[in-house]
Write a protein that binds this DNA or RNA. Sequence first.
DNA 1: ATGAAAGCGCTAACAC
DNA 2: GTGTTAGCGCTTTCAT
Lengths: 329, 329
Amino acid sequence: MYDVARLAGVSQTTVSFVVNNVTSAAISQETRDRVWAAIHALGWRPNAIARGLRTRHSQTLGLISDEVVTSPYAVRMILGAQEAAWSVRQMLLVVNTSGQQDIEQMALQFMLERRVEGLIYATMYHHEVVPPPDLGPVPMVLVNCFVADRSLPALIPDEVQGGYTATEALIRRGHRRIAFINEVIPMPALFGRLEGYRRALADYGLPFDPTLVCSVHSNAQEAFAATRALLELAERPTAIFCFNDKMAMGAYDAIKRLGLRIPHDVAVVGFDNLELIAAQLYPPLTTVELPHYEMGRRAVEMLQTLPAGETLPPIQHYIPCPLIERASI
Amino acid sequence: MYDVARLAGVSQTTVSFVVNNVTSAAISQETRDRVWAAIHALGWRPNAIARGLRTRHSQTLGLISDEVVTSPYAVRMILGAQEAAWSVRQMLLVVNTSGQQDIEQMALQFMLERRVEGLIYATMYHHEVVPPPDLGPVPMVLVNCFVADRSLPALIPDEVQGGYTATEALIRRGHRRIAFINEVIPMPALFGRLEGYRRALADYGLPFDPTLVCSVHSNAQEAFAATRALLELAERPTAIFCFNDKMAMGAYDAIKRLGLRIPHDVAVVGFDNLELIAAQLYPPLTTVELPHYEMGRRAVEMLQTLPAGETLPPIQHYIPCPLIERASI
DNA sequence: ATGAAAGCGCTAACAC
DNA sequence: GTGTTAGCGCTTTCAT
């Protein structure tokens, strides 16, 4: 910067002023031009580290995740966060902990040492977490997870609304016997989607029939068997709501194997909106989207709105899960 | 740090020495303990920004990608890069450009201002690129892409070997009429895999039959049609090598629709190893893996080995694509 | 309209 | 074994 100043025949202060467009001390246009010319001539680039030291702003956000970075389920979360950060000239420091506590702890330390101005703690699937306690002075927001006592702000999918939306879509198409193949491992998604399913049924005056609801592990194979069983029922369902798209994949196989057509004979709706599956299946799968992009985006947005030094209110934000209509209902 | 020093009754230098475990000036164990005690008492944490300014090391690597971050194809690349960086205490600054030149240019500037010590430029699929010219003094390695004149080091999948491996696996199972449903849009993967397919055939003394090779867009639907056509051939193939897993998904549908069984009647091998598809398909798909994790890992590894200030030799590294055996052949 | 000077929090010669 | 001191490259107050 001194070199630039010397070449432009001004003080280093002036260079700083023109680079940062400081308005309080108006520099003449002619001087500005000289300075910029010198900058380009020298190929000088400001040193963000030095600037950060001085301003006490790293312009950096930390993103700690368990597996989310590597899971196709949720990569859009990173995209949302990164694009939002980008729009306010911040950058994202990411580390994936593979679920290991020690890595998580160290990652947090590293980020705090780098003076990140906010932290996002994200998980691959919606569940309860216990993040490291010592966050120092930086605000943290949870994405796709929450702490037991709700003492940290969180952005989580509105599972109930998602289950409701899926079921309602089916009901609106005239289906009255709607099966639900649920996940079997207890998790918020399981309870929430089931609750949404029941509420939709109730709201439309349809009975809740326990024989139409089953629980299996969420993979194509178990869903295949479950679908088969469902379709062998005396009064078989005309529509199946699958806990996720992987299961819908198995359901498709079972339905086709029985010579039935989708959606003519049996309608199917999934959950997750995994492009790779939903769009490639035949017919393309109507499904409910997990709002990963939106959660990532809002996470950094929340971190922005924070008047320096303050802490975010521990609000649990339920983000809606929109229906993505394709051709399976 | 001054506060810590005062509390421990030593100079600030001593604190620095114990924090950084400086061996050149051995501090007595008793002093070390006092210093650490003070550090914990005060909850002090070193400021990596100040340290970076002084040492001129940011301990940071930049990762610029077009879509790779958001594509399930390649998220493992980030994992590989991040884990490797982690093991040498570096962190990753990531930005996804969505393919926009201006974002790319700015991202590069931002990273250079933050004094990243190395750059990784990655793309979603294997193709030629023109990265921004002004890299400043930092080394860059390309991942999953290359520049026309090969003037930048690159890590790319060995498509030829991948195609060869897939075909060979089929040949070893006794297949002699092996179809290949290739991609239609010209790209290295298309040419490489075809080349591998031909070489394997030749090496095993099998004739190359052009009627067994077709080109379609790489989606399930077109692969469905292509497979159908292939299976209606007078002398139909007993095995199909699909350009990618999405296409294998379509091939599965077509084979099953014709009442044929996999792999008994027709064997299938894919490419990409998209867990989501390959493992969920029934039967699970044998496929060739794109070495994303490995490319990410090696990229940061290469950046490490660089004696400060030097530039990486522009070697094009072809990373092998291993066969992932499941149950479709 | 521009410049002098005082740090931001740390590292690393060098001195004792 | 430990302390003194001089920066690293910037921003920003206060003078001029």
